[in-house]
Amino acid sequence: MDAIHFHARNEGRIVKRAVYIAIGIDMEGRKDVLGMYVGQNESAKFWLSILNGLKNRGVEDILIACVDGLTGFPQAIEAVFPQTEIQQCIIHQIRNTMKFVSYKEIKPLMADLKRVYAAPTEEVALAELDSFDEKWSGKYPKIAKSWKDNWANLSTYFKYPEAVRRLIYTTNTIEGFNRQLRKVTKSKTVFPSDDSLLKMLYLAMIDITKKWTGHRQDWGQIHSQLEIFSEERLERL
């Protein structure tokens, strides 16, 4: 789940709208857009309605949900799909914690932070996070604190082998989709309504997903790993 932002008219005013996009990969290794939603009052209740909608439309289970740090979303997932593992997006976490870092210090700080999220095991990652904290907390105390506060959902991917990690660790699929949507909508600075915004995005989605044929090249390896980790759940599907 990720968001892109647009401007639309609402009761005579121009307002910024977040459009949340859910993309899923089924057990055949094929990706699809599960839904696009205009957010207005994002809360656990809002996310709960989205997840119940997905379930009512036929989504039986979600093995791993990769999400941005959206307030109330993990709780809503747990309520509808209680066995789902939450992976908070590493890329968004990096962006959110790098906002106020001095330009001159971004490169060395990022090199130290990479030792955390690219560590071979969770134990090594935690040790590297402590080292990062000791080195940088004097200047940037909020960075390590944010990672530690969110660690339960940031560290999910460490239990999996490299092939599965790549699937849930990267955001290439959804960010690539968002870029294509922006290409289609870039000439439209303000949409007359939320409905017109969604209609244009829907038509763009139809064109984009026509090219989504076949499954991931590494799906055989990923599927065999998921079968081991989630054997009983997959047997029920």
Rank of each mutant, 00 (worst) to 15 (best):
D2E: 10
A3I: 08
H5S: 15
F6C: 11
H7T: 10
R9N: 15
R9C: 12
N10L: 04
E11K: 14
V15A: 09
R17A: 10
A18E: 15
I21Q: 00
I21V: 15
A22Q: 01
I23K: 01
I23R: 03
G24E: 04
I25S: 01
D26L: 07
K31L: 08
M36N: 07
M36H: 08
Q40L: 12
N41T: 14
E42L: 07
E42V: 05
A44N: 10
A44K: 15
A44W: 09
K45S: 15
K45D: 15
F46N: 05
I50E: 01
G58R: 12
G58Y: 12
D61T: 14
L63N: 05
I64S: 04
I64M: 07
A65V: 04
L70S: 00
T71Y: 06
F73Y: 02
Q75P: 03
I77L: 15
E78T: 09
T84N: 03
I86K: 03
Q87R: 04
I91R: 04
I94P: 02
I94L: 15
I94G: 01
R95V: 07
R95F: 03
R95C: 08
N96W: 05
N96I: 06
M98D: 06
Y103F: 11
E105Q: 15
K107G: 09
P108A: 12
P108E: 11
M110F: 11
M110E: 10
D112S: 10
L113A: 11
K114P: 05
R115S: 12
V116I: 15
T121W: 10
E123I: 13
V124S: 06
A125I: 11
A127R: 09
L129R: 00
D130V: 13
S131M: 11
S131Y: 06
S131W: 10
F132E: 01
E134G: 12
S137T: 13
G138D: 07
G138H: 12
K139V: 02
K139A: 14
K139M: 08
I143G: 01
S146T: 15
W147N: 02
K148G: 09
K148P: 00
W151M: 13
A152C: 13
L154V: 05
L154W: 02
T156G: 05
T156D: 02
T156V: 06
F158P: 01
F158T: 01
F158Q: 05
Y160R: 04
P161A: 10
A163T: 10
V164I: 13
R166T: 11
I168W: 03
T170Q: 07
T171P: 06
N172K: 10
T173R: 08
N178W: 06
V184F: 05
T185G: 00
T185P: 00
S187V: 14
S187Y: 08
K188N: 14
V190P: 04
V190D: 09
V190F: 07
F191Y: 14
D194T: 06
D195G: 12
S196D: 12
L198A: 04
M200I: 14
A204W: 06
T209G: 01
T209V: 14
K210L: 14
W212I: 10
T213F: 02
T213S: 13
G214A: 02
H215M: 12
D218F: 00
G220H: 11
I222E: 03
S224K: 14
S224D: 14
E227G: 15
E227K: 14
I228K: 09
F229T: 07
F229G: 00
L237D: 00
